[in-house]
Amino acid sequence: MKATTTLKEKMMNILKMISAVLLTICVTACVSQDSYYNAGEYRKPVAPTSYDVTPQVIYRIDDHRYVSIENYDHCNGQNYYIDTKAGIRTEIMRGNLSQYQGRLSIADPTGLNIVIPEAPGGTCGDKGCNAYLGYSTDGGRTFKYKKYMQSGSPHIDSVNYSILVAKDGFYLVKKISQTNGSTSVTKYPLVPSIDLEKPYPPDLHDEYLSEKPLPLLRTPSGQDRFTCDSSIHPSNLPPAK
Rank of each mutant, 00 (worst) to 15 (best):
Y42C: 13
S105V: 13
P199Q: 00
P238V: 08
P238E: 00
F170I: 03
L217D: 04
D224M: 14
N96W: 01
T123W: 06
P213V: 14
T179H: 09
F143H: 08
R65I: 02
Y171A: 10
N130F: 05
Q99F: 08
S193V: 14
V67G: 00
V57N: 11
T24H: 02
Y36P: 04
R43F: 15
R89C: 02
L204R: 04
L204C: 02
Y59E: 09
P202Y: 03
C30D: 10
D126K: 15
H155P: 10
V67E: 02
V191I: 09
S158N: 07
P215L: 11
K127D: 15
Q178I: 04
S230Y: 13
P238C: 06
L214K: 13
V46I: 14
P199F: 05
G140I: 07
T183Y: 00
A107L: 11
M149S: 01
T123D: 07
Y135D: 03
V159G: 12
L214W: 09
F143W: 06
S105H: 15
K174Q: 04
I114G: 05
M17E: 07
P120D: 01
G95K: 06
T6A: 09
M17N: 07
K144Y: 06
S136R: 01
P109W: 08
P239R: 06
G169W: 04
A39I: 11
D229C: 08
Y59V: 05
K44R: 07
S158F: 02
E207C: 05
I88E: 08
D83S: 10
L217R: 12
I114F: 02
L15T: 11
Q33R: 11
L112Q: 14
K144V: 04
P201W: 00
S105D: 14
I116T: 04
G87D: 10
E91A: 15
Y81R: 08
C129G: 07
I18A: 01
S105K: 15
D138F: 03
R65K: 11
I176T: 05
Y132G: 03
S221Y: 02
D62R: 00
P220A: 08
Y72P: 07
S193M: 13
Y132W: 02
S162M: 09
Y36I: 08
I25S: 06
N76M: 14
